[in-house]
């Protein structure tokens, strides 16, 4: 079996007919999606498009109304807790707000999954932690507490922790949110490095078009709980789908725009009236 021919068609995560709701509100409507081994898949979507909900479903943090999610061949919507735990150990997650444990130092944060889930001796764990921190460029900051780090450093530390158990899949939730363009570009580089250097499958959930075009092998746009387009970066950029074009060209929704104009006009009229 040659790894390079199977690579392109080997689905790591495959989602079929996924529907989910948040309270009373329906958030996802029958989403179908496949992610292949060794690719960087970027899921784009505006605020309220359901991308966070989709992410929670993939991580098994919430139960769907309908549909199946296969991760490495295991249906995580219907499997036993022990199986779900086994699947999750192959997934590393870098959360939007980093989610570092605030009472532990950076090194302890990265060491935690290794201490809890493996039988490795402490010196080996220390070495592995150092390697992960070195890979994200934080080897000198290992004894800092999370609140002593800048936003970009926290994200890097979160990535180091996500990689602690050498997962097959790494998930990034809004990696560049709240970062300046230079630090965000650095993170893009780091994500590309993870794919090249470790052969990991990477799922990135974001609304940053620029960063998505930098890193994506394939991308998809989620809007109002439905997938608009799925395809390679080139296919995505070339598509004529109105919503995707709107996203690519940063045009606002027509309705709120008209409302805003109307509001401005009324406001000006009001001023005029008073004078």
């Amino acid at each position: 079996m040659t790894p390079f021919t199977t690579r392109a068609k080997d689905p790591v995560i495959s989602i079929r007919g996924l529907s989910a709701s948040y309270g009373e509100r329906r958030v996802l409507h029958g989403v179908d999606l496949e992610m292949y081994r060794g690719e960087i898949f970027v899921l784009l979507g505006g605020s309220g498009s359901g991308k966070t909900t989709l992410l929670k479903q993939v991580l098994g943090l919430a139960k769907p109304d309908a549909g199946t999610i296969l991760v490495n061949g295991v249906d995580i919507t219907a499997c036993a807790t022990s199986e779900l735990t086994a699947v999750r150990r192959r997934i590393g997650v870098a959360f939007q707000g980093s989610a570092l444990f605030s009472s532990l130092t950076i090194a302890e944060n990265v060491a935690l999954p290794l201490q809890e889930l493996t039988q490795l001796a402490d010196p080996i764990i220390a070495l592995m932690v150092w390697m992960k921190l070195k890979a994200v460029g934080l080897a000198n900051e290992s004894d800092f507490l999370p609140h002593q780090l800048s936003g970009g450093m926290k994200k890097r530390a979160a990535i180091a922790r996500a990689m602690a158990l050498d997962p097959d899949i790494v998930v990034f939730d809004e990696p560049s949110a709240g970062l300046d363009p230079i630090v965000a570009a650095g993170l893009d580089e780091l994500i590309l490095f993870l794919k090249r250097g470790f052969g990991m499958t990477v799922l990135v959930v974001t609304h940053e078009m620029q960063s998505a075009l930098q890193i994506a092998d394939r991308m998809a746009l989620l809007h109002d709980g439905e997938l608009m387009t799925v395809g390679t970066r080139e296919e995505f950029v070339a598509t004529h789908h109105p919503r995707v074009r709107q996203f690519l060209e940063r045009t606002p929704d027509p309705a709120p725009r008209a409302a805003a104009d109307g509001f401005a006009a009324a406001f000006l009229r009001g001023i005029h009236h008073e004078s």
Partner: peptide
């Protein structure tokens, strides 16, 4: 509550803890 809001509880769950 802080751990929930900052997703630390979710982080524990996805780590299998």
């Amino acid at each position: 509550g802080t751990m929930v809001v900052t997703e630390e509880i979710d982080a524990l769950r996805v780590m299998g803890l």
